[in-house]
Amino acid sequence: MTGSTVSRAHQATFGHVTAWIFDLDNCLYPASTGLFALIDERMGAYIQRLLGVEAAEAKRIQKHHFHTHGTTLAGLMKEHGVDPHDFLEDVHAIPLDRVGANPRLAQGLGRLPGRKFVFTNGDAPYARRVLERIGIHDQFEHLHDIHAAELRPKPEPHGYELLCARMGIDPSRACMVEDMAQNLRPAKALGMTTVWVDNGSERGNHDADPGHIDCRISDVGDWLHDLLGEEA
């Protein structure tokens, strides 16, 4: 089988898809790498400096914003007037040695027919660093980051609508791949096919309603090879 066709077993679910939208963190690399834990630590340190609180209180505030607003940044902007550029530059200043090249994922993406996009609540400079580290930076037509979403993070519908409008994506022929189940609800509401990467992300199973999840997987590279069939 070649990358120009979708395996017969998946034809009914994915055969119509011409645009593939992937989340980045804990999706295109495994949550088990612990990379996002480094960002989490820097968020806590940022809040400590910002509010003059101890580490435990900073952690509580951080998780409050994450649970209430969808991202820590969204809460800090709404409740403390934080400059998003300053925050994102600071918390993303992490080493990437926990993430390595993934030739299997790169091969699968290369064989996947259609247009490919990354849609992340992070910022573009960080996302590009991660994509380059994995070895898949050249696989995507467009990177839609938090600034492109006008600082309205997933799962707010606004960013999804902007991505589709700007890139000429027909949602009914698009598939979104995400590790945060709640972020698939707006995609499904727009008419997208949805894939939940259930691999242990913090709160990844929040709002994991089968009504807005078409397919549940644990590894994107393995799923792509299952979808397309192994090359001869």
Rank of each mutant, 00 (worst) to 15 (best):
T18R: 15
D25W: 11
W20L: 10
L50A: 14
G52C: 07
W20G: 07
Q11P: 09
L50G: 08
L24I: 08
E41P: 00
A45T: 03
L38E: 12
L51K: 12
A19N: 12
I21Q: 12
Q48F: 13
T33F: 04
N26T: 05
T33A: 07
I21W: 09
Q11R: 15
A45D: 01
H16E: 08
G52Y: 02
A56I: 00
G52R: 08
L24Y: 08
I39N: 07
Y46T: 02
E41N: 09
G44I: 04
H16Y: 04
R8P: 11
T13Q: 15
V17I: 13
A12M: 14
I39G: 05
H10I: 00
C27G: 14
E54A: 14
Y29L: 09
L50E: 12
V53W: 03
T18L: 11
I39T: 12
V53S: 10
T13P: 03
V53F: 10
V53E: 04
T13I: 04
C27Q: 14
Y29R: 11
A56Y: 00
L38T: 07
N26R: 10
F22L: 08
T33M: 08
I21A: 07
F14T: 03
L24A: 06
Q48E: 15
I47G: 01
R49V: 00
R49C: 00
R42D: 00
M43V: 13
L28W: 03
G52L: 02
A56R: 01
A37N: 14
C27L: 14
T13D: 12
T18H: 13
A31E: 13
H10N: 11
D23I: 05
P30K: 11
A12V: 11
Q48R: 15
T18M: 09
H16W: 01
R42N: 10
A9D: 14
E54Y: 10
V53H: 06
A12I: 04
A37C: 03
W20P: 05
F36Y: 02
F22P: 04
H10G: 02
L28K: 11
A56S: 06
A31I: 07
F22N: 05
I39V: 15
H16T: 05
A31V: 15
W20M: 12
A37S: 12
R42I: 00
G44H: 03
Y29K: 08
A31N: 14
P30C: 08
Y29P: 03
N26M: 04
L51S: 04
C27M: 13
R42Y: 01
A19C: 14
A45W: 00
D23Q: 13
G52Q: 07
A56H: 01
N26F: 02
F14C: 06
G34H: 05
A12E: 15
V17Q: 02
L35C: 03
P30F: 03
F36T: 11
Y46W: 13
S32H: 00
R49Y: 00
I39S: 04
D25E: 13
I21S: 09
G34Q: 02
M43F: 05
L28V: 09
H10A: 09
G15V: 01
I21H: 10
D25T: 14
F22I: 04
L38Y: 01
L38G: 02
F36R: 01
F14H: 12
A31K: 10
